[in-house]
């Protein structure tokens, strides 16, 4: 098989100082800026009035009793279960008991809900705006330069992605333009941010999207959810728990554990 000669391209070393380093430094600084912007823009948790808090905590109490029933003895679990079910079904913990059975208000009219959505919007903006700005900056100033060579070969399909703006037909796809260095920075700088800002930073948009996928704790008491229905469902869940304790048969286990 014939050896394909390795392409070499003579490039001005000034390319590194005027293209590579500026893009890298700007990317790192944007990440740091985004981290601190997120920290500063994080809104304080709002004060909740006593009735709302009682409603939420009562529901959590039921869930915790159900989840950890095995640490309670039989009699104390039965007592708690009966008290909670009675309170849930009579609506003792509801914020406004006279509204029972009425449909929940429209979530869009609730000012609290609007605030939550604003927070999400702010986060989205903090990712989208810098990305758009930097990408158009790179495109406007540095398009058409070949700056680097990837250390591993790629198939020809990558050519249009890596060499955007460089219309040279026979060039090896390993040569990459400034815009592809920008993309490489987006994906690979997370470890640098880990090193600079600590591990739970908000600098990288990739990790932010990961966390947004996760379960949201605030969703449970969100607007548009009828607390009365939640209470009734939780009462049903509590009623069907088949109780057993971790201390069941503990004497036997202890005796088995003792080796003479």
């Amino acid at each position: 098989m014939a050896q394909v000669p390795v392409q070499t391209i003579h490039r001005d070393p000034q390319l590194f100082y005027w293209i590579l380093f500026p893009i890298t430094i700007v990317m790192i600084l944007t990440g740091v800026l985004r981290h601190y912007a997120t920290v500063l823009m994080a809104s304080d948790p709002k004060r909740v009035d006593q009735k709302t808090m009682r409603e939420q905590r009562a529901l959590l109490h039921g869930i915790n009793v159900r989840g950890n029933h095995h640490v309670l003895s039989q009699s104390s679990f039965v007592t708690r279960r009966d008290a909670l079910i009675a309170a849930y079904e009579s609506g003792a913990y509801l914020k406004d008991p006279e509204n029972r059975g009425q449909p929940p208000p429209n979530p869009m009219s609730d000012p609290n809900a609007m605030e939550g959505m604003m927070g999400m919007m702010k986060n989205q903006m903090a990712t989208i705006i810098p990305n758009t700005l930097i990408m158009s900056w790179v495109n406007a100033f540095f398009s058409g330069y070949v700056i680097m060579k990837l250390p591993f070969p790629l198939t020809i399909k990558f050519k249009s992605m890596l060499q955007a703006g460089v219309a040279t037909k026979d060039m090896d796809p390993r040569w990459m333009s400034s815009i592809s260095w920008y993309f490489l920075c987006i994906f690979g700088l997370q470890s640098v941010f880990n090193f600079l800002l600590g591990s739970d930073n908000a600098a990288n948009q990739m990790s932010q999207q990961m966390t947004q996928m996760g379960p949201q704790a605030g969703q449970m008491f969100g607007p548009g959810v009828d607390p009365n229905k939640q209470f009734l469902a939780e009462a049903e869940n509590l009623a069907v728990v088949e109780h057993h304790s971790v201390l069941d048969g503990v004497e036997q286990r202890l005796l088995e554990g003792i080796k003479v």
């Binding site: 690979g188 700088l189 997370q190």
Partner: peptide
């Protein structure tokens, strides 16, 4: 670590 590895590998190779 793969993304970070490729980034620094490319940078220093270049």
């Amino acid at each position: 670590g793969l993304a970070g590895f490729i980034l620094t590998w490319t940078l220093f190779y270049g």
